[in-house]
Amino acid sequence: MMPAHKIAFRFDGQPVVAMEGESIAAALLRHGIVGFRIAVDGESLRGPYCGMGICFDCRVQVSGPNRPRLMVRSCITPVAEGMDVRSVPYPELNNV
């Protein structure tokens, strides 16, 4: 099999190694991270459900490199070298 190019990004400050081309969600799930954000009730954790961009439960905040902070669906957004990915706590979201 062709060796995959590895890239590094951060999730809530922690370094995560991903394979080029894969989605943020796939990279996190590969590392056993399943809770991506806190729901609007302020307490319950959520992760990917539909895996195809419909349910929005896997959404995270992404910034850099060369892109402003944006909320994306991690299941349909490819990782990029140096990306800063953050879970989306609801109170913080209100301050964006």
């Binding site: 989605s23 796939a26 399943v34 459900y49 539909c50 895996g51 195809m52």
Partner: peptide, 18 residues
């Protein structure tokens, strides 16, 4: 709503795509 509960199609999307 717990992380880890997924649509069956969601699991398949992870398998096929990644």
């Amino acid at each position: 709503t717990l992380p880890g509960v997924m649509g069956a199609g969601g699991i398949q999307a992870m398998l096929k795509g990644h």
